[in-house]
Computed example of a mutant assay.
Amino acid sequence: MASFIKAWGLVIISLCYTFFIAKLVPKGIKRLILIFPVVLIFFIVPFLISSIHILGITAFFIAWLANFKLVLFALGRGPLSSNPKPLSLPIFLAVSCLPIKIQPRPKPPNSHSHGGFGPLIYTIKAVFLVLLIKVYEYNNKLPEKVVLTLYAIHIYIALELILAATAAVVRAMSDLELEPQFNKPYLATSLQDFWGRRWNLMVTGILRPTVYEPLLQLFSVLGPNFSQFPAAFGTFVVSGIMHELIFFYMGRLRPDWKMMWFFLINGFCTTVEITIKKTINGRWRIPKVISRVLTLGFVMVTALWLFLPEFNRCNIIERALDEYAAISTVAAEIRRRVTASLL
Rank of each mutant, 00 (worst) to 15 (best):
S3W: 02
K6V: 01
G9Q: 10
G9S: 06
I21N: 00
I29V: 11
L32C: 08
L32I: 09
I35D: 00
F36V: 05
I41H: 00
F43P: 03
F43E: 07
V45P: 06
I49G: 02
I49S: 02
S50F: 05
S50Q: 13
S51L: 08
L55P: 04
G56L: 08
I62G: 01
W64N: 01
F68Y: 00
F68N: 00
F68E: 00
L72F: 02
P86M: 08
L89H: 11
L89G: 09
P90E: 06
V95Q: 11
C97H: 11
L98R: 04
P99R: 10
P104K: 04
P104R: 05
K107P: 05
K107S: 15
S111V: 01
H112Q: 15
S113Q: 15
G115R: 07
G116W: 01
Y122G: 01
T123A: 15
I124W: 01
K125R: 14
A126M: 15
A126R: 15
L132A: 14
I133F: 14
K134M: 14
Y136T: 00
E137K: 15
Y138G: 03
P143S: 12
P143K: 08
Y156T: 04
I157S: 03
L159P: 03
T166Y: 01
E177W: 09
E179S: 13
E179I: 11
L191Y: 06
W195K: 03
G196S: 07
W199C: 05
V203G: 00
G205F: 00
P209V: 01
T210N: 07
Y212R: 04
Y212L: 10
P214F: 00
L216I: 03
L218D: 02
V221C: 10
L222Q: 06
G223Q: 12
P224W: 03
F229W: 02
P230A: 09
T235P: 09
V237G: 05
S239I: 00
I241F: 10
E244L: 08
L245A: 08
F247W: 12
F248K: 08
M250I: 13
M250C: 10
K258Q: 14
F262A: 07
N266P: 10
T270C: 11
E273P: 13
I274Q: 14
I280P: 11
N281K: 15
R283E: 14
W284S: 11
W284Q: 10
I290M: 12
L294M: 13
L296H: 04
G297M: 11
M300A: 11
M300W: 02
L304P: 11
L306D: 08
E310Y: 05
N312F: 07
N315K: 07
I316N: 06
L321T: 00
E323K: 03
Y324I: 12
I327H: 09
T329S: 12
A332G: 10
E333A: 14
R335A: 13
T339E: 15
T339Y: 10
L343Y: 09
